[in-house]
Every structure is written in structure tokens, then in C-alpha cells.
């Protein structure tokens, strides 16, 4: 099929824009690599996981550079948030489609959109002055993994609801009509048709929400307490990788600075792995 001249011009223009987008990612990855190489060379990969603690200094011989507490912190907070926000969001989207009266569903969607628009620093501020004192009354010191999970749940909930809502909307109408014709109850329709037919969209919603939770920084710095330790309970303070970068980059020099870039690289690695896993799950789902 030959392209018309206008098509050709479009073709090149689109190519150019797509290439630019890809280039930006490449530059970011390259930059992270270049900045973290000094730390990898002088500190060594093992020390990032075997050192006694995270007490970095510009000179690698005097400091200790263990990032695993932050890694655990990031994963715990993210996992916790997904455990709550996932079911909550998907069920809310189902409610919106199959149970709510039209006006209420409309109102509900607008409110969720509003929730999505609240800047993260506002969530963090609310968490710091309202949520943390409440948690402190239960178990001091207040800012903790638990506070982080609650805040992150609230922040990623709109992503889950809105994307699940869109996924459910995309199910061919005839599926639902067919189910109705067979005399299936509303719950059976949802359970055996809606959830199955929109599986890919729903898992996409969860994935994007996970990405947002992993990358969240400002709110997490404010509510998690920022102690670099592996938590023993929900009420222990934690520090995430993003919080670590935000807290220290402004004051870091030498190998300390470089090791913060390495932690950024680590974060990128986690997200890459997540994308790969979700792609794998998706391709398996299609084969089913």
C-alpha cells in the first residue's frame, strides 16, 4: 500500500515525535547510569545490601551504604496501598456501573476525579497534621508505615477507580445483554462475565496505580517518619527510596550523592521489572 504525500509527511512527523519520546527515556537512563557509576565502582554493589546501616558520607571508606531498608520500605508501602486500593477501587467501579442510580454514579465519578486532582503535598500535609496524631494515640510515634499506606491508598484509589471504570465500560454490550437473556443474576453477571472480560483493563489499572505508589515522594516524606530501618510492625517508621533521594540529595556530595543516583537506578529497575511482569501476565491472559 503506497502512502499519499500527505500521509508520508504525517508518517515522518509521527515517527519524529515517537523517536523524541523514546530518546528522553534513554537520556534519563543514561544519566542515572553515568551518575551512579562512581558509587558502583568505589562502594561496590554488595555494600549497598550488606553494610550495617545507611549512614552515608562523601568518602566511601567511612560511611555505610545499605539501601535494603529503603527497598523494603518502598515495597511494603506500595504493596500495602495496593492491597487496600485494588479491591476498593474495582468494587467501587462495579458499583458505579451496575448498582448505583445514574445521578449517584455521575456524582461519584466527579468526586473521584476531584480526588485525583488533589496535589500530593496536600495529602502529605493532611497526613502530617491529622492522620499522624491519630495514629500516635494508638501506637507512637505516629508517622509510620501505616500512615504511609493509608495516604498512598487514598492517592492511588482514583487511578484504580477511573481506569477500572473505563475497562468495564469497554466490555461489549452484547455480553451483558446475553447474560441478561440467560437469566443470570446481577452478581453472577459481574462475577463470571464482567470481571473476566475486563481482566486486562483491571490489571492495567492496578499496574498504573502501583507505579504511582512506588514513585510517590512528597506525601511519603511527610507521613512515613523517614527512619531507614526494616519495619517490625505497621506502626514503625520507614523510609522509601524516593524519600531518601528527596531528603538527602540537596546536601549530598561525592559518593553519597552518587549512591543516591544509584538508588534512583534501583527504583527504575523495580518499575521495569513490574512492567515486564505485567506484560507477561497480559500475553498469558490473551493466550487463555
Amino acid at each position: 500500500m503506497s502512502l499519499s504525500p500527505l500521509d508520508k509527511r504525517w508518517f515522518w512527523l509521527c515517527r519524529f515525535f515517537a523517536f523524541t519520546c523514546a530518546l528522553i527515556i534513554c537520556f534519563i537512563i543514561l544519566f542515572l547510569f553515568v551518575e551512579s557509576i562512581p558509587a558502583i565502582q568505589s562502594i561496590g554493589l554488595e555494600r549497598f545490601f550488606n553494610d550495617s546501616s545507611w549512614h552515608p558520607t562523601p568518602d566511601p571508606s567511612t560511611g555505610s551504604f545499605n539501601l535494603s531498608a529503603m527497598l523494603v520500605g518502598t515495597l511494603a508501602a506500595t504493596l500495602g496501598a495496593i492491597i487496600f486500593a485494588g479491591p476498593l477501587g474495582i468494587l467501587a467501579a462495579i458499583f458505579c456501573h451496575f448498582y448505583a442510580p445514574k445521578q449517584i454514579a455521575y456524582l461519584f465519578r466527579r468526586m473521584i476525579e476531584l480526588l485525583a486532582g488533589i496535589p500530593s503535598v496536600v495529602f502529605g500535609f493532611w497526613g502530617l497534621v491529622t492522620l499522624a496524631p491519630i495514629i500516635r494515640n494508638l501506637a507512637p510515634p505516629g508517622p509510620s508505615l501505616c500512615a504511609g499506606i493509608i495516604i498512598l491508598t487514598m492517592m492511588i484509589l482514583p487511578t484504580v477507580v477511573l481506569l477500572s471504570d473505563a475497562a468495564i465500560k469497554n466490555i461489549p454490550k452484547k455480553y451483558i445483554e446475553g447474560a441478561a437473556a440467560l437469566g443470570l443474576s446481577r452478581w453472577s453477571t459481574i462475577k463470571s462475565i464482567v470481571i473476566r472480560a475486563s481482566k486486562e483493563g483491571l490489571s492495567n489499572a492496578i499496574m498504573l496505580a502501583t507505579g504511582r505508589a512506588i514513585g510517590e515522594t512528597m506525601a511519603v516524606v511527610m507521613v512515613c517518619g523517614n527512619i531507614a530501618q526494616i519495619p517490625n510492625s505497621l506502626f514503625d517508621p520507614i523510609r522509601t527510596l524516593t524519600a531518601n533521594i528527596a531528603l538527602e540529595l540537596g546536601y549530598a556530595t561525592g559518593q553519597h550523592r552518587s549512591s543516591l543516583f544509584f538508588s534512583g537506578l534501583l527504583l527504575l529497575g523495580i518499575i521495569t521489572m513490574m512492567v515486564l511482569i505485567s506484560e507477561k501476565l497480559k500475553s498469558e491472559a490473551i493466550r487463555d
Binding site: 546501616s53 549512614h55 555505610s64 502530617l128 497534621v129 499522624a132 496524631p133 500516635r136 507512637p140 510515634p141 505516629g142 508517622p143 516524606v221 511527610m222 517518619g225 523517614n226 527512619i227 517508621p237 523510609r239 528527596a246 531528603l247
Partner: peptide, 27 residues
């Protein structure tokens, strides 16, 4: 040494430290 300090929380910016103390009577 910084590693000798046993802290419950870590504050980054000054404002965060102020808020933490203003909201916690034992901080």
C-alpha cells in the same frame, strides 16, 4: 557520630520538623 543517634523520626525541611513538634507534645 551520626550513627550513634537513635531517632524515632527524621525531618527533612525545617517546616516538616516544626509541624512534627507542633503536633506531638512529646517530641
Amino acid at each position: 557520630k551520626p550513627s550513634d543517634i537513635k531517632a524515632d523520626l527524621i525531618a527533612g525541611e525545617n517546616q516538616q520538623g516544626i509541624k512534627m513538634v507542633a503536633n506531638d507534645e512529646s517530641a
